[in-house]
């Protein structure tokens, strides 16, 4: 399963719930304001880092760039471009968009 989170973890609990309900081996793609969840030094860093033991975390480059966050991405988070976004969708048999 590919999980997509597009809300800031500081405004909504989407990322937190997603990480709680994502099974081992699934992928989590952060897009739009969701990319703030990939930042170093934030209050959710430990949670995301902990989750990376079970799930693979990706963040969309265009959204990181636009927000000036591209230089603060946590180690272990894979930055993907739009082509990589498409590949992720194609690779997974189902996906869930968290509102």
């Amino acid at each position: 399963m590919l999980h997509i989170v597009n809300k800031s973890p500081f405004e909504r609990n989407s990322l937190e719930s997603c990480l709680r309900l994502a099974k081992q081996g699934s992928a989590v793609l952060l897009i739009e304001d969701g990319v703030y969840g990939a930042a170093q030094g934030s209050s959710v860093e430990a949670k995301v880092q902990g989750a990376m033991a079970n799930v693979k975390v990706y963040a969309l480059d265009a959204d990181l760039q636009a927000r000036g966050m591209a230089n603060k991405v946590l180690d272990g988070v894979t930055v993907v471009d739009y082509g990589g976004f498409v590949d992720l969708v194609a690779e997974h048999s189902n996906l869930q968009s968290w509102l």
Binding site: M1, R20, L21, A22, K23, S26, N94, L95, Q96, S97, W98, L99
Partner: peptide, 18 residues
Amino acid sequence: SAAEMADLMAEQDVVISF
């Protein structure tokens, strides 16, 4: 439980969130 819910979600063809 959260773990059971995760299993249920994973077995779906389509998941739509509100």
